[in-house]
Amino acid sequence: MKPADTAARLPAPYWNPYVAGFVLGLVLLATYLVAGRGLGASGAFSALVATIANAVSPAAAQANPVHARYLEGGTPLLDFLPLLVLGTFVGGWIGAKSAGRLRFGLDRGPSIGAAPRLALAFGGGALVAVGAKIALGCTSGQALSGAAVLNAGSLAFMLAVFAAGYAVAYFVRREWL
């Protein structure tokens, strides 16, 4: 194999994490300066689920307090967070594509099979969704955006996220190590 081939197949390295954090901080700053609010992700999925529920049964969706909040304004998907998350998808795709990291497969440790990994991913997603609903935000909206404005509840949220992560990590070590 020629050296040029090797270079073409290796993905570009990740940014230095402190540099990436600085740039991410600038993106968060821009979001506050432009929109008067921080970043977020989970709210976009709430809008999506409210839209699906409304399509399945409008009466039931509009009577449900969780969905109704999103249905008041008309089209829940034409809002700040859904468009932000759509942009996040496209931006992530551009990043992965241009770095040579766009490849279809599973992300998992060496000792877990594909089916259990997919099942744990699904279950973890459901847990994260319920947690984000109760906390009124996820890692983006609470931890990142809230901590930057010294929001006391957001800082408590972030400590809880890491506390639970470290506490549960031991029990799922076969998934990742």
Partner: peptide, 21 residues
């Protein structure tokens, strides 16, 4: 709410591998 939600999200994070964003 933020502590209970954070604990659930943290557990889901390490089990599932991601957070929403």
């Amino acid at each position: 709410a933020q502590i209970v939600g954070g604990l659930l999200l943290g557990a889901g994070f390490v089990v599932g591998g991601y957070c929403p964003g």
